[in-house]
């Protein structure tokens, strides 16, 4: 049952990323190119995705997911250096390539070999992340 929900969610996610144009790096970089030929498409995608999720979150109160006892709890309202530092690195790579993790997976099948170059580098980065985190934030965040 959980696998079925995962498959359905992944199908909707993959279809949505493709149809919306978010697997097209030119559209993503166009959104980030405020000083160039700005492309607002990403705002429509983000807005479109937030609408169903807004209602999905609203309806969670007093209910439970189909296959689990509880919904994910709201994370602590804590803006730490990790969140800021990680988001800066991510944003730089996102701008440089026009790819974030979802579209990087969704474009692998048809986008050609350069998508695999990015994907493998991203996996290596994900593998290195715990060590980078430990080296930079060990003292500040010992319990991670």
């Amino acid at each position: 049952m959980r696998l079925l929900f995962s498959a359905l969610a992944g199908t909707l996610f993959g279809a949505g990323l493709f149809i919306s144009g978010m697997t097209d790096t030119a559209k993503v970089q166009g959104w980030l190119d405020i000083f160039g030929d700005w492309d607002p498409t990403l705002a429509f995608v983000m807005g479109g995705a937030i609408i169903p999720m807004f209602f999905a979150w609203r309806l969670t109160e007093g209910r439970r997911p189909v296959t689990q006892a509880f919904f994910p709890p709201k994370p602590p309202v804590e803006i730490d250096r990790r969140l800021a530092f990680g988001s800066v690195l991510f944003g730089m790579g996102w701008g440089l390539s026009g790819l974030c993790p979802g579209p990087a997976v969704a474009s692998l099948g048809y986008g050609g070999v350069m998508h695999w170059v990015f994907f493998v580098a991203m996996l290596v980065g994900m593998g290195l992340a715990p060590y980078v985190r430990a080296a930079l934030f060990e003292r500040a965040m010992p319990a991670e």
Partner: peptide, 18 residues
């Protein structure tokens, strides 16, 4: 339209699997 599908996928994972 694609964004709506992405949001429905996220809602599916939230409501199905938490």
């Amino acid at each position: 339209g694609g964004g709506l599908l992405i949001g429905l996928g996220a809602a599916m994972l939230l409501w199905g699997n938490g």
